[in-house]
Structures are given as C-alpha cells and as structure tokens.
Design a protein around this nucleic acid. Structure first.
Length: 561
DNA sequence: CTGACTTGCGCC
DNA sequence: AAAGGGCGCAAGTCAG
C-alpha cells in the first residue's frame, strides 16, 4: 500500500500509459487505443484532460517536456522518464542487458538533460529526436517483466521519475529569495558594491594588511601560488594555502588572510553577480538533476544550489503570509546502514533521536564525538587515526552493519559491482564509462599505484551502498511528500496552480524546504513526517529503524536549526 | 585567444 | 575537528 505513495508502483491496467513523442511541430500520443496526433499548441490541454483520470506519461526526458507544461499551469501526477530509467537499467545487476540493448543504445546512453544554462539547442538538432521513445519503453518493459527483482526495480524507476517531476517543479517555483536582504548582508560584510574590476573596500583593506604582514607589496591574495610563495619567503613552513593549514600557523598574516579568504569566497560564489545571474522576480532558480551522481544523489546546475552557504540563508524568506517548512533527517546514512544490513543492535542505537548519543548510552563508545568519527569512518573507509581505532569496537558491537560495508569494499577492490537496496548498480571500475567517472586504468602503473587505486575504488563501493540507498530513501520521501502536498492543497484550497499550494522548493540529500501558506504550515509539517515514515516502510518493511526529522516552521531558512 | 587542469572551499 | 565518500563552482595557471 505504501508503494502508492511513490506513484504507481505495481500499478496494473487501471493506469493509462501514454507515450509522448515529438514529431516536428506535433506530438504523437501512443495510447492503448492507437496513436493520436496532437498539435504542440494544444498539448497542455490534452495532458490536463487526461490528468483527470489515472495516467502515466512516458517521455524521453522530463526536462524536455515538463517545464513547458508547468509554465502553462499543468501538473502531472506520474511519469516514466526513459532517460533516467535507461541509465538505471543499464547498470543494475537485475536486468538482462540483451533485452535492453539495440541500435539506439548509444543514443540513450549519451542523452543529457537540458537545463536553462545550456546553450539553446537548435530545434532540429536535439539528439533526443533521433530516438524512438515507444521502442525504448517496450524494451524497458520487457526488461522489467523478465527481472528477478521486478518490484524493486519498478519502485526505483517510479521514484526516480517522480524525482524528475519534483526537480522540474522546484525550478518552476523557485526558492523565495530576498535580494534586499542578501544585498544588505553583502554590504555589511564587504562594503558597497564596487565597480567592475575592483575589490570591495573591505577586501582591499585586508589585502593591504596581508601585503604589509608579508612584506610583499605586489601580492595578489587571490592567487594561491602567489600567496604560497610569499608565505614561504616569510619563513613559514607550508605546502599549501588552505585555511586549515593557515590556521595552524602563528603569524600576524594569518587573521587577515583567513578573513580575506572567507570574504573573497562569499564575493565570488554568492556575491552581487550571483544575485544578478540566479535571482529573478524574488526567486532563486537553479536546475536540479536527479540521478546526476552515480550513487543516485542529485546534482545541480546553476548557482551552486547544492551548496548554498549558511551565511546567505537569511535571504531565503517566505512570501508574505507564507512560511518555509524546513525538514531534515538526523543521521540518515547510519540509519540506512542499520536497516540495509538488518543490524538490530545498530537499529537500537538509532531508536534515540540522536543515533550517536544512542551509541554512547548503549555503552559502545565513550563520547558522541567518538561515535560520529567511528561511524563516518566505517561508511567512508577511514582507516587511519581515531576512526581506525574505533573499528574493532564497532565491529564487535554492530557485526552486521560493519560486515556489510566491509564486503562492499572488498567487492569493489575485486572490481565487482555493488548495488543499493533497490538495485542501482555501481559502475565497473574503468568500465564502459557510461558517464565520466573514476580513474581509467592506467597501463604501466606500479604495483603500489594499482593497490592504491583498488583501495580507493573499494572506498567508493563501500560508500556507494550506503549513500545510494540513502538517496533512494530520500527519493521515496520526496515522491510521497509531493503527492501529499498536492492532496493537502486540493483539500484546503481547492483548485489552484502548483505555486499557489504548499509546494517543494528545495531538496538537498536529506533536507527539504516546502513553501506553504502560513495557515497550512503545521499540516505540512505533519505530512513531511508521515512521508518519512512511509519511505522507511517502503524500503525496509517492518525493520525497526526510524527516521526522525527535525522540522521547523520559519520565515527564513536561517531560522531553522 | 581558448580550453583543460588545479586549487580551494561551500554543501551533504 | 581533519580524515574517509559524493558533488559544483570560480579564479588562477598553463599549454596549445
């Protein structure tokens, strides 16, 4: 039953499947009853009419269809994104590749999403138009029908496709952003906006201090090489200019240099030109790319959306009469590890709201800091220092959890594929390179170099099973929440466009932001929690691990946490 | 000049 | 308070 939340997992005949195909200015709708030709100008109406009943839209790539529909006020309940589904099916160990591959395989493998930052495609030069979505759909259906893990794969494809809808909707709605608040912040920290080509006053001041402290009047503090040379010339024993390295030093240049780096970062990453480029009409609009990371995490494009620094979050402010509901999962990945491995002792520690504190209370480790370092080391492959020392204790206490990540690491070292709970497969090291990743095998490398490479790949596969499954949990959470918000809007507000209802505006691995009318904020908070519980049941059935959320109803993102 | 790479730092 | 996994981005650097 929970699967209904993601949108049609295990659906049968009652959902109408319609494959949409671009044909010049028209669209072909491949329906059970036959093929219908729909002029592109009437597509939005066509989709809207069919959305009155249960329908799944099947299209080559959500980024090529959905933004236009949203712009015309049309929201769809479910889709299959053939591009994303293809990428998953190409790597999963649960698919018979012979059923998937054909003449068009290379084209589907290479298909990229379109985002607003891409140079406009020539209308007739889109590589997607050389592909046949109906044929790809048929191949994918055949793969699913023959898969020994059909249910998992179908859930994964439904969740991924639902993520694609969420991503488009978040770009459409945008994150509410107050340019005036942001500018005030910049002016306070950097000084007034400088004319092009000049440093803000505060940076200029710090630059002089740095030059003075190092006796280097021509120093360019923006050049790491320049700074390194000057530091060494001043007799400081450093090999790089990272902030952490500098902080270890005892020298008058350190405070102004650290301050400079911090402010220069703000200026270049999120300064005035960022505002000019990415914020329009009170919204920060970037593009989210589901499946953009091999583990299944999302990537983003435009404005560095996945690393909005805490420093500028005060500018993310809900509209008048609206609120932001900010929710994040405490320690998602260790909880996922407990569940995937079926480790009851670790699940017991996860019963506490703070899993690390739970480990302390259980007597496994002495301090919360040790717990954190130990668990992160286990998931990331840290072997040195404190996390290495923690391993024997963790192995004794959580044998199943540790065995799972250790086995994933060994498999990776042997060059084998590992997978997430729902069957997303890791890439083959130096393999077919479906997308750019990893280090290609380097012929003639030394034995030590090979070992180093193998161990590095083992750390990657070790992390893959946890990070990838956590990404699946988050996708299910998001997909279910999307539907819940829509229904809530329906109940409370009746008809209305997406952006007039409570709607998702941001997602970051284990955190979501919902923009909602103020009077519905508490209801939204409930839905966010219910969706998290549903996601846990969907992925891990009755296994006793929960995913507690920190939920805050706030005006500004900065007021959460 | 452009493009590829490196450095450093923001997020999880 | 890094390390160990995953990213995006801007500026500097260097080769062609």
């Amino acid at each position: 039953m929970g699967s209904a939340g993601v949108g049609g997992v295990g659906e049968t005949a009652e959902v109408n499947r319609i494959v949409l195909v671009r044909r010049g200015d028209d669209v072909e709708a491949h329906m059970p009853a036959g093929v219908l030709r729909v002029p592109a100008t009437t597509l939005a109406g066509f989709v809207r009419r069919h959305e009155a009943g249960p329908v799944r839209w099947i299209w080559d790539d959500t980024t090529r269809w959905y933004p236009q529909l949203l712009a015309q006020g049309v929201r769809v309940a479910r889709c299959t994104d053939l591009r994303l589904a293809h990428a998953i099916l190409r790597r999963t160990p649960f698919a018979d590749q012979r059923l998937l591959t054909g003449e068009e395989t290379a084209g589907w493998d290479a298909l990229q999403p379109v985002t607003g930052t891409d140079p406009a495609l020539f209308p007739l030069a889109d590589p997607a138009d050389l592909l046949d979505p109906a044929a790809e759909d048929a191949r994918q259906q055949a793969v699913l029908a023959a898969s020994p893990e059909r249910r998992r794969l179908e859930l994964l494809l439904a969740a991924e496709s639902s993520g694609a809808l969420v991503a488009a909707e978040m770009t459409h709605a945008g994150l509410p952003w107050r340019t005036d608040v942001h500018e005030r912040l910049l002016t306070e920290l950097l000084g007034p906006r400088p004319v092009a080509g000049h440093r803000p006053a505060q940076l200029e001041r710090l630059a002089s201090q740095i030059r003075g402290a190092l006796g280097a009047p021509a120093l360019n503090p923006d050049s790491p090489a320049d700074v390194l040379r000057a530091l060494q010339a001043a007799g400081l024993p450093v090999e790089d200019t990272r902030s952490w390295t500098l902080a270890q030093l005892e020298h008058p240049v350190v405070p102004p240099l650290l301050e400079y780096k911090k402010l220069a970062r703000l200026l270049t990453a999120n300064g005035w030109s960022w505002l000019d480029t990415w914020v329009r009409d009170g919204r920060f609009r970037s593009w989210f790319l589901p499946g953009g990371v091999v583990t299944g995490r999302w990537a983003s494009n435009g404005g560095g959306a996945l690393s909005v620094p805490v420093q500028i979050r005060p500018a993310a402010v809900a509209d008048e009469g609206w609120r932001l509901v900010v929710a994040d999962v405490a320690q998602l990945e260790p909880r996922v590890l407990a569940a995937v491995s079926g480790d009851l002792a670790m699940a017991e520690a996860a019963r506490a709201r703070d899993l690390y504190q739970g480990m302390v209370d259980a007597g496994t480790v002495a301090t919360r800091a040790e717990a954190k370092v130990g668990i992160l080391g286990a998931m990331y492959g840290g072997t040195r220092g404190e996390s290495g020392r923690m391993m024997p204790r963790l192995t004794r206490r959580y044998p199943q959890a540790i065995a799972l990540v250790e086995e994933a690491a060994r498999a990776g070292e042997r060059g084998e594929v590992v997978r997430t709970v729902l069957g997303r497969g890791s890439p083959v090291p130096g393999g077919e390179r479906l997308v750019d990743l990893g280090e290609p095998p380097e012929p003639g490398g030394s034995r030590q170099e090979d070992d180093r490479r193998r161990r590095a790949w083992g750390r990657f596969t070790r992390n893959f099973v946890v990070q990838g499954t956590a990404a699946e949990w988050a996708l299910c959470w998001l997909a279910d929440l999307r539907n819940r918000l829509w229904r809530l809007g329906e109940e409370q507000l009746g008809e209305g466009r997406l952006e007039e209802r409570p709607h998702l505006v941001f997602f970051l691995h284990d955190e979501v932001l919902v923009h909602t009318p103020e009077h519905l904020a508490d209801r939204v908070a409930d839905e966010v929690r219910s969706a998290a519980a549903a996601a846990g049941r969907l992925l891990f059935g009755g296994f006793p691990v929960d995913f507690p959320l920190d939920v805050a109803v706030v005006r500004s993102w900065a007021d959460a946490a």
